[in-house]
Design a protein around this nucleic acid. Sequence first.
DNA 1: TGCCAGGCCCTCTTTAGGGCCTT
Length: 205
Amino acid sequence: MPKQAADTVIVLDFETTGLSPDNGDRAIEIGAVLIQNGEVVDSFQRLMNPGRRVNSFIENYTGISNAMLKDADGCAQVMAEFCDFIGDYNLVAHNASFDRRFLDAELAIIDRQYGGDFACSMLIARRLYQQAPNHKLGGLVEYKNLPTEGVFHRALADAEMTARLWLQMLEDIAMEYDKTDLTFRQVQKLAKIPKAGVASFLQKL
DNA sequence: TGCCAGGCCCTCTTTAGGGCCTT
């Protein structure tokens, strides 16, 4: 696995009560891994009590039950600890706009901030793997034959899979374009490149 | 009561609509 500057990131994933913090949805689990030099060197996983019951769809979708959340620490305490964990590292998530909304909403409640920037593994995968049958996290993991623990829709498991996908994308760029020293900003910028211009963009770096 | 996200991206587009992704 090539060592690259872009490797030093936090890959995170939220499980939540629904799709929109603007509609009152809250985080119920956060999972994250720290990648440095192409390897996972640290991780963070906590359930958090959102202060109300989660519906049966979420229980079934995530496997996180109300019983599991009953004695969990509240969002404020967990998110404060998570904010310490992420520090000012750059961040990666699959469909990052979703996780960013919840991270921003939960940290706003406790008046905390972070200094890193987000990259979206889904938008980048849409550029790099244009032939993939879909760009769901599970679909991309299958498409690239990445190892899994067989657990889906739990925060740490999904963060670990996203991390493997992220590293795979860096490796594929390194192999195909001989670019082994990409910065986070360069990889992040891929998400904004028109699909037809991806190869040209990477070749010119 | 009824409704309920938001950003990206494609196209039979741009005075818009709908699918993909995330829970």
